[in-house]
């Protein structure tokens, strides 16, 4: 059925719609107050008719905004976590910088990129190596105390033998008269001191420091603090249990003593 046939069939309705639209157009083209008043009425009617459409659109907009806000909240949470982490890192670095300025030791900073704290060997991997002037057997510490020593050194990375490693030993001084002894790790953050005679006075809370007689470790680096002292009548030495001072399990940045 072509257009003209359709028009012929419905010509009365088409003509009426056309004349009505033309009349309304003429009427609203006037600029009198009466017309404005009717226009206002028409606007009210149209707003009532289009109300549900607007409501539905608003709901859709709110849904879209909600989804966007949910995404934003997720992103902001991630950012917040990152910022908290950065703040913590910043504080840690500030403390380390302050420590580096105070200590007479020549320190070089290093970032921990990997840690192996389970099993037989306890090691850390640093992102500094031969290219940065690192060589094997240099003491490694954090702001709290001795952490270990450099073991194998590559061009860009270094493996550190930790103080908690079963094979780690370090000569120390402890007690009222700074008697010599040997620190041996036992488990976790704990270790014990060998070789301090029973006659010496060592009390709980005493600090254990490196003796300085070793070729590797300079003296007076904090190693541990005494948590218990026992006297065994069958042994010539005190049984001293200590807690390692360094943050072995939570190190991000360390110092290499050069």
């Amino acid at each position: 059925m072509n257009f003209f046939r359709l028009f012929f069939l419905y010509r009365v309705h088409v003509i009426y719609i056309f004349t009505t639209l033309l009349s309304i157009l003429l009427y609203f083209s006037n600029d009198s107050d009466n017309v404005k008043s009717v226009q206002a009425d028409f606007s009210d009617i149209i707003s009532v008719i289009l109300g549900p459409k607007k409501w539905y659109k608003d709901i859709l907009n709110i849904k879209e905004k909600n989804e966007y806000l949910m995404e934003s909240v997720g992103q902001l949470r991630l950012l917040n976590t990152e910022l908290i982490h950065l703040k913590h890192e910043n504080n840690e670095l500030r403390e380390m910088l302050s420590f580096k300025n105070k200590t007479p030791l020549s320190l070089k900073g290093g970032t921990v990129v990997n840690s192996q704290l389970s099993g037989f060997l306890h090691t850390l991997t640093l992102n500094s190596g031969l290219n940065d002037g690192i060589v094997p057997n240099l003491p490694v510490m954090d702001i709290n105390g001795l952490l270990g020593k450099t073991n194998t050194v590559g061009d860009r990375a270094t493996s550190v033998q930790l103080i908690t490693d079963k094979n780690f030993r370090v000569s120390i001084r402890v007690g009222e008269k700074w008697n010599l002894g040997l620190f041996i790790p036992s488990h976790g953050k704990f270790g014990y001191i060998e070789g301090v005679p029973k006659s010496q006075k060592v009390i709980q809370g005493d600090t254990v420091v490196t003796s300085g007689i070793s070729n590797i470790y300079p003296g007076d680096i904090p190693v541990a603090s005494v948590i218990s002292v026992e006297v065994d009548s069958e042994r010539p030495f005190l049984k001293i249990i200590v807690e390692i001072s360094a943050e072995v399990h939570n190190s991000n940045f360390v110092f290499i003593v050069q």
Partner: peptide, 16 residues
């Protein structure tokens, strides 16, 4: 003339 179109609208609606 101020309300042009009223009678045109009402008359054509009546004819319809």
């Amino acid at each position: 003339e101020s309300l042009l179109g009223i009678l045109a609208l009402s008359k054509s609606t009546t004819a319809y």
